[in-house]
Design a protein around this nucleic acid. Structure first.
Length: 645
RNA sequence: GCCUCCAUAGCUCAGCUGGUAGAGCAACUGACUUGUAAUCAGUAGGUCGUUGGUUCGAUUCCGACUGGGGGCUCCA
């Protein structure tokens, strides 16, 4: 007999060789029906694999990440089996589960594969699933594995086997399909009831551009048809929040082929939104001790040779602009830091005045590969809410805390709650690729870690993700489709102070090198607005709304009164418009609702008599009538609520 | 950049197997003077992304180009 410890701490006795499935059966029939995989002593196993010694066992179902992954991993094999039947000679790369489903990288040789063939593959998968083929695990020697795939002629699997240790290799077989696989898998294919291939894409073998490009087929499967239907509906919902769609509908920004790809045009309403964000940040930054500066959009090539950016990015960047006569070379500004370094250098600095903080909404241009562009989140010209802090090494932690405070203030004012912070440190195994001494790195790294901890941030730490010039802290948020975007960033830099020979005079009357901190709470205005649009589905916080009210006169007779109300609101810096079209009130309300205007102010005979407005809130409906002054008061208190915590 | 899909009116889209195009909304004009999510009628608007080719004939088929979407980290 062996002892099996379950997650609740209870210990049960079973015969040696018991399977997780049998354990599930002994607990309840329902659990036995739903169990997909099991975590045995911390590693995920097939539920049909015998357990031969005392172990802790956690049974995994569809509700567990690992259970789902097992389901999708098996689905990837099922798809591979279907592909092999339909496209003889197909070779396989890798086929893992991913966040929403799975994919398999395949080499179809001369055969092409497009979306038109999805239905055929889906049919075949369902047909194979119904045969209830078992997934059979088998340990094989490296020689046998090599032998099998040599015979099959699958060079990708051979490439994978090459890196595996003999004695750790397993095959999984279901039906006629044999795959090199660590597992685990479902007991059999029959629980895969709903299948949908999502899309097809190219992917380089092992993510290496120099290697062959395989066809990556994405799919998703579910144990029930209903779950697939719901999943597809959720996707549709998410699409409605897409910032590119809403940006067009709400007339915030646009792109033009003539202007060039990746170069956003900000429309009047988008500009209003953007300016509000800028104002908000300016105010917060002045309070936090930043000094605004302005620098030009180009800089001489020398500037970037000094900063090192020319060497690193020069070749695959927008190329230098030349003056016609002197042949001087200028670069479009790809970042603001070198300019700010030169501002720092305009006069000697004393340790007493540090830290100095230069802030600029600097528009920069970077050459992104055409396939990397995406709406407003990845563009070729964008404006950073940039600032550079020059401080003494002993001030790094304090400055970090202040910047984190600023970022958190911004996130709070804009309703971002679901974010994570990533601390990127250097790779301890490979310290040589970083500039700066061990001592300053250790100091800065611990400063970041302590600052994040003191602020109670939810963090993940990534070793080796630091820039070569210093460690950093990034804030990540998810968009409507679950894709992760980096917003705010705080980076320590030892490189530029060195390259620009920045100095300050210390208390000892000697020259010292300051530490530079780059930081951008929004990241870029463009990306921030994009994520904000998706985050709030186009219903911006009241203070940011480009159109905060719409005055809707019942008929032409009340246009004068409407204008009166409008003027009064404008004086109070509340923005909106009067809808004086010859339309019925119902129509005006509908249009304002569609435009996501937060407040609709209906004015007619009653309102004119009482100097009042009939207030309707977007998405909520009629709030009743109030005087214009009362409305202004209510409006302002609502804004104060969000902005002053 | 590479793989793949897409490109028709300002917007959203229809147009079967090749015979030079339609709808709804928006715009414009007129009537209606309106009380909480679409008043009615009329008018105008397209070199069917660009460019080669096949064809008697191409929005439709093939190629190239341009632009856009999805993907190119997630180690069997």
């Amino acid at each position: 007999m062996i002892n099996i410890t379950l997650p609740d701490g209870s210990v049960r006795q079973y015969n040696q060789g018991v399977t997780s499935f049998e354990i599930a059966q002994s607990i309840s029939e329902g659990l036995a029906r739903n169990v997909l995989a099991a975590k045995v002593n911390g590693s995920v196993w097939d539920i049909t694999r015998p357990i031969n010694e005392d172990a802790t066992v956690q049974l995994l179902t569809w509700n567990d990440e690992e259970g789902k992954n097992t389901f999708w991993h098996s689905s990837a094999h099922l798809m591979a089996e279907a592909l092999e039947e339909l496209y003889p000679g197909v070779k396989f790369g890798i086929g893992p589960p991913v966040e929403n489903g799975f994919y398999y990288d395949v080499d179809l040789g001369e055969q092409s594969f497009s979306q038109d063939e999805f239905a055929k593959v889906e049919q075949k998968m369902l047909e194979l699933a119904r045969t209830k083929n078992e997934f059979v695990r088998r340990e094989v020697s490296k020689a046998e594995a090599v032998d099998y795939f040599t015979q099959k002629g699958d060079e990708y699997k051979l490439d994978l086997i090459k890196d595996l240790e003999d004695g750790t290799i397993t095959f999984y077989t279901q039906g006629n399909f044999v795959d090199l696989c660590r597992g685990p898998h479902l007991p059999n294919t029959s629980s895969i009831k709903a299948v949908k291939l999502m899309n097809v894409a190219g992917a380089y073998w092992r993510g290496d551009e120099s290697k062959k490009q395989l066809t990556r087929i994405y799919g998703v499967t579910f144990p029930k048809q209903k779950e697939l239907t719901e999943y597809l509906e959720r996707l549709e919902e998410a699409k409605k929040r897409d910032h590119r769609k809403l940006g067009k509908e709400l007339e915030l920004f646009a792109f033009s082929e003539k202007v060039g790809m990746g170069l956003p045009l900000w429309l009047p309403k988008g500009t209003l939104l953007r300016e509000r964000l800028e104002q908000f940040m300016r105010k917060a930054q002045v309070k936090a001790g930043y000094q605004p500066v302005v620098t030009p959009h180009i800089g001489s090539k020398e500037l970037y040779v000094t900063s090192g950016h020319y060497e690193k990015y020069g070749a695959d960047s927008f190329q230098p602009i030349k003056t016609p006569n002197e042949n001087e070379e200028f670069l479009l500004k790809p970042m603001n830091c070198p300019h700010h370094c030169e501002i720092y250098k305009t006069r000697p600095r004393s340790y007493k005045e540090l830290p100095v903080r230069f802030a600029e909404f600097g528009t920069v241009y970077r050459y992104e590969q055409s396939g990397e562009l995406h709406g407003l989140t990845r563009v070729r010209g964008f404006t950073q809410d940039d600032a550079h802090i020059f401080c003494r090494p002993d001030q790094v932690k304090e400055e970090f805390i202040k910047v984190i405070d600023l970022v958190l203030y911004v996130f709070k004012a804009l309703g971002f709650e679901d974010y994570t912070a990533q601390i990127s440190l250097r790779d301890p195994e490979n310290k040589t690729k970083y500039i700066g001494t061990d001592e300053v790195w250790e100091k800065a790294e611990s400063a970041i870690i302590e600052a994040a901890a003191e602020k109670g941030l939810r963090t993940v730490t990534e070793l080796g993700e630091a820039a070569f010039y210093g460690p950093k802290l990034d804030f990540m948020v998810k968009d409507a489709l679950g894709r992760k975007w980096q917003l705010g960033t705080i980076q320590v830099d030892y490189n530029l102070p060195e390259r620009f020979q920045l100095e300050y005079i210390g208390a000892d009357n000697a020259k010292h090198r300051p530490v530079m901190i780059h930081r951008a709470p929004f990241g870029s205005l463009e990306r921030f607005v994009a994520v904000l649009i998706e985050h709030c589905g186009g219903n911006f916080p009241l203070w940011l709304s480009p159109e905060q009210f719409a005055i809707l006169p019942i008929s032409e007779k009340y246009h004068d009164f409407a204008q009166e109300v409008y003027n009064k609101l404008e004086e109070e810096d509340i923005r909106g418009f009067v809808d004086n079209r010859d339309e019925k009130i119902g129509r005006k309300i509908r249009d304002a609702e569609v435009r996501k205007v937060p407040f609709m102010l209906v004015v007619g005979e009653k309102e004119q008599e009482n100097n009042a407005v009939s207030v309707r809130r977007h998405g909520e409906g009629d709030l009743g009538s109030m005087t214009v002054d009362e409305y202004i008061k209510m409006f302002k208190s609502k804004i104060a609520e969000t902005l002053n915590k």
